[in-house]
Design a protein around this nucleic acid. Structure first.
Lengths: 131, 131
DNA sequence: GGTGTATCATTCACCCATGAACAACCCTTC
DNA sequence: GAAGGGTTGTTCATGGGTGAATGATACACC
């Protein structure tokens, strides 16, 4: 059962990943951009890591890569010299919007095989697994 | 919806992973041992990779690590000198059995929150996602 | 028998994720 | 104001995964 779910979800991830790959994004990078869009302002890496449910060291290198592609910028926080803020660039914003469209399509493709009536119960059951 | 499922499954994976971690295994390594047990005989890395749904290069280093822990052995295939067979050692067999017990417990913990009546429909819906 | 093609395992470079160790910095508390 | 303890981001080692390139081998076909 656990293996069944892992298999299905990994295939789904691979599908989304490959769709995003077409525009030079990945799920991890999209999640970061997405959080920055939502925040509407520069976010400390630490808080960004928390929002993305990953550890700080991971966010460091994720932002490294995003910065290399000029999708985000590191800016320093005047009020706390330990902190480094990640700021969305215009290019990053555009890439995110593109990614959101691509992802919506890919997600539709995955779920179109399961009838609308069943989606609620699937969501409910999956939710039960979480805490 | 996709993100909900990914989140839930990743947490579940983390739980199983940490349970296996207690005995020096991981999901990936357990999957390999498991396939070797099932096969009842040495298996070419290529076929092992296929059974584990991963690429050959990944299996190479997975077997590297398992071999370093003396859980499997590389033996050469007399009938095809390109091929390298992975063979389960007695220690590997024992570790697998231990892993299977640990995993069964961990899986029970994860799913005990969802009522028996719902498990079938969850399995059915997840199955729909797969091909 | 020689040639071409396909398959095998490995290596390499890369991506994503974790935990441990670390220097820099903030903040309390004396 | 000096001292300690908690944060912050980075680095490093490790594990797990991919795709591309490579050298060795098998095999079919001429």
């Amino acid at each position: 059962m656990a293996f069944l779910m892992m298999g299905a979800v990994h295939q789904m991830e691979a599908h989304l990943e490959s769709a995003l790959g077409g525009i030079g994004l990945s799920l991890a990078k999209f999640r970061v951009l997405s959080q920055l869009v939502e925040a509407k302002e520069p976010v400390p890496l630490s808080s960004l890591a928390e929002r993305c449910s990953c550890v700080r060291s991971n966010m460091t290198q994720l932002v490294d890569r995003l910065e290399a592609e000029k999708l985000v910028e590191r800016v320093s926080d005047p009020s706390d010299r330990r902190s480094v803020l990640a700021a969305l660039t215009p290019g990053g914003r555009a890439r995110h919007d593109e990614g959101a469209r691509v992802l919506a399509d890919a997600e539709r493709e995955v779920f179109e095989r399961i009838p609308w009536a069943d989606r609620d119960s699937l969501a409910r059951l999956v939710q039960l697994l979480k805490p």
